[in-house]
Amino acid sequence: MDKYVTLRSKTGSFSFQVEKRAALILGGLFLCSLLLFVICTSLGSSYIPPLAVVQQFLGIGEKEYEFILHVLRLPRVTMAYFVGAALGVSGLILQRVIRNPLGSPDIVGVTGGASGGAIVFIVFFMGSVSLRWLPLAAILGAAIATLFIYSLSWKKGVTPIRLILIGIGISALMNAFVTMMIVISETAVTTKAYLWLTGSFYGTNWEDVSLMVPWIVILIPLALLLTGIVNVKELGDDVALGLGVRVQWYRFILIAISVGLAGVAVAFAGGIGFVGLIAPHVARMLLGRSFARLVLGSAMIGGLIVILADTIARTAFLPLDIPAGVFTAGIGAPFFIYLLYRNQQRLKG
């Protein structure tokens, strides 16, 4: 039996091969996502039968659960999934671009920059300016931090190690900045800001989701479009140049997508750490190295991780609602250390 299935448009201008195994795994991940989505929505301070969740989603639900599902749970679970997807893809791109398995928006300092941008917005503009500008503030912060990190790491080229070290430094600086902003703001803002910083989906509503979705819908397909270029780039800058790929330009676009996704995720969910690190690795274990599959895989795995973390966070210690970031860090830090151990040869020097 053939390992590949070829998909081709009628005119033949658009064609690519799909490996059956990868297609199966992606399909499986999609089913898992649907299943977990329903299960996570039905769990909570009051249990709602999964069937009722599905009915509610299809618009034929009973009035009994409407408030809990429609106002409290569905937007929250949806948001968690999208945030996870954004972080997963953002991490995947970063790991590719800096060719380092330890690349992740939170470790490299992109998340720190986004937090900085968002905290400025929360402290100074919350109330006077519409909330829809919050993601933009976070993205701007992330972009400025990235620019700083990248240019400070530049010394006849950028080595991954230097990039990560400088990222750690900039992260520390941004953390200090955020702490400062929180301290100089009023107590009411302090509590809110801190909850947000640790990464919580508490109180997400449909408006938030509707502000979040456009970014995802634009940026992830954009990453998919760049697939061919990324696969060529994987061979190295010289080869890519030889094949006519404008390396620096595409590297810039890819980083911009990654920064945008990380910024949006931070704007709505705060510091959900380590998802951008784990999701691409799990995706690679399942799907190999082809970029298009990995984008889809990382997105879905990231989404799965975050809805799972958030569900545990809001159900395990009822009536407390723990920030989901605590759980992603709990899984992520040991995983990071495992990667450190696995990749030690590449980290010499």
């Binding site: 640790t198 510091g271 407390l320 723990i322 709990g330 992520g332 830090a333 990071f336």
Partner: peptide, 16 residues
């Protein structure tokens, strides 16, 4: 990584 882990747990306790 270890710092991130501990700081995240510490911040989590704020909510408690």
């Amino acid at each position: 990584a270890i710092s991130a882990l501990f700081i995240s747990f510490t911040q989590g306790m704020l909510v408690i």
